[in-house]
Computed example of a mutant assay.
Amino acid sequence: MTLRELREKARQTLDPVVFDYVAGGADEERVLTENERAFGRYALLPRVLSGSEERDTSVGLPGAPQVSPVLVAPTAFHRLVHRDGERATARAAAAEGAVLVTGTAATTAVADVVAAAREAAPDPAVWFQLYPHPREEVTAELVRRAEDAGCTALVVTVDSPVFGRHTRDLRNGFTDLPPGYAAENMRDLPGAGPGALTPIPMSAAPGWPDLAAIMARTPLPVLVKGVLHPDDARLAVEHGAAGVIVSNHGGRQCDAVPAAVDCLPAVTGAVAGRVPVLLDGGVRRGSDAAVAVALGASAVGVGRPVLWGLAADGETGVRQVLSTLRDEYAHTLALCGGRRNTDLTPGMVVRKGGTW
């Protein structure tokens, strides 16, 4: 199946309320739409007589020395779409040599996610996505659990001072998880009773000093996710970030921001090669990934397509999504005369309808 067909099978498989939760965005969903549409404004200008029969698309990322250029972006509540949930996603990502970013809102605890990934590969790259908590001891415990589980990096999400207004969820009355499901990483945290759940934090209180404190607390590399402004990218690097992820939260937070890929050139310019820059939001084909890499991204993340694959066919479906995007990317690289990722450069990207 193509990714479009997987999406349709997921729609047919899932409860409509759950499908809307996965598919939906904030407010009028303008950014959700623009994330995908924006890639259509870019075209690749190939080079010729410069390729090779052998191509290397692997990329080195913090805590992930040799992985696919397509990674699994953090998405919540995988068990809502398939009974094996994050375990299936973890096995699939590890088998495909892709980084899995599991997170605070996973319906499987981080230790169990990493253990599942190790069933498919001896040394998988699993990163832990963290929402900083206003209470320092809660953040510290989440970081400790990620370290103990064997995560190889932290991803601190910084674009969520408040919850986005998800119109579909509000219309459907989907405001809490159904019985039997929980954000398992939020269980048994400091200040809560045995077995109790602490709410996932969305707080405007954390600032740059709090990010620096997280970095001082852990030996793991820390990437900062949710950056759109080049000045924030500079600040992230100055505070010690090991990577910057250009993201508008998949269109699920502010519905008045640009498409993620449109913000990428300014961010990569501000970072100036000091740390890797990644992108998520709107990647639906391998050529989208190639455009992002040409504009300076080291790798791209995909979220909704992974959940489509998981809903449609479990672990096998996730593997299909990741392998399809990786193979399409490699095919596009070859068509552009490239041997390796760095052969895709900003000078090979043009605006459709513009002058060359």
Rank of each mutant, 00 (worst) to 15 (best):
M1R: 05
L3R: 10
E8D: 11
A10V: 02
R11Y: 04
R11V: 04
L14Q: 08
A26C: 02
A38W: 01
F39I: 00
R41K: 03
L45C: 12
P46S: 09
P46Q: 13
V48H: 09
L49V: 11
S50H: 05
S50Q: 12
G51P: 11
R55A: 10
L61G: 10
G63R: 10
V67H: 06
P69L: 01
L71W: 13
V72L: 05
A76V: 12
V81W: 02
G85E: 09
R87M: 14
A88D: 11
A88Y: 07
A90I: 11
R91S: 04
A92C: 09
E96D: 03
T102V: 12
T104H: 09
A105H: 11
A106I: 02
T108V: 15
T108I: 03
D123Q: 14
D123I: 00
V126W: 06
P134F: 01
E136P: 08
E147N: 00
T152I: 11
L154F: 03
P161F: 01
H166F: 07
T167Q: 15
R168N: 13
R171C: 10
R171K: 14
N172I: 04
P179V: 08
P179R: 15
A183H: 08
R187G: 02
P190A: 05
G193T: 01
A205Q: 14
P206S: 04
W208F: 02
L220G: 10
V222Y: 00
L223C: 10
V227H: 08
L228A: 07
P230A: 06
D231L: 14
R234K: 13
E238K: 07
G240E: 07
G243F: 00
V246A: 09
S247V: 02
N248I: 04
G250R: 05
G251T: 11
R252Y: 03
D262K: 04
C263Q: 08
C263R: 08
A266M: 13
T268F: 10
A270N: 12
V271M: 08
V271K: 06
L278W: 12
V283C: 01
R284D: 01
R285D: 04
A289M: 08
V291N: 04
A294Y: 01
R304L: 05
L307F: 15
L307R: 11
W308T: 05
D313T: 03
T316L: 11
G317E: 11
V318Y: 08
R319T: 12
Q320N: 03
L322D: 07
S323T: 15
T324N: 03
E328A: 01
Y329M: 13
A330I: 10
H331G: 13
T332Y: 03
A334Q: 06
G338H: 07
D343L: 01
P346I: 04
M348I: 01
V349T: 08
R351H: 10
G353L: 03
T355Y: 05
T355D: 13
W356R: 15
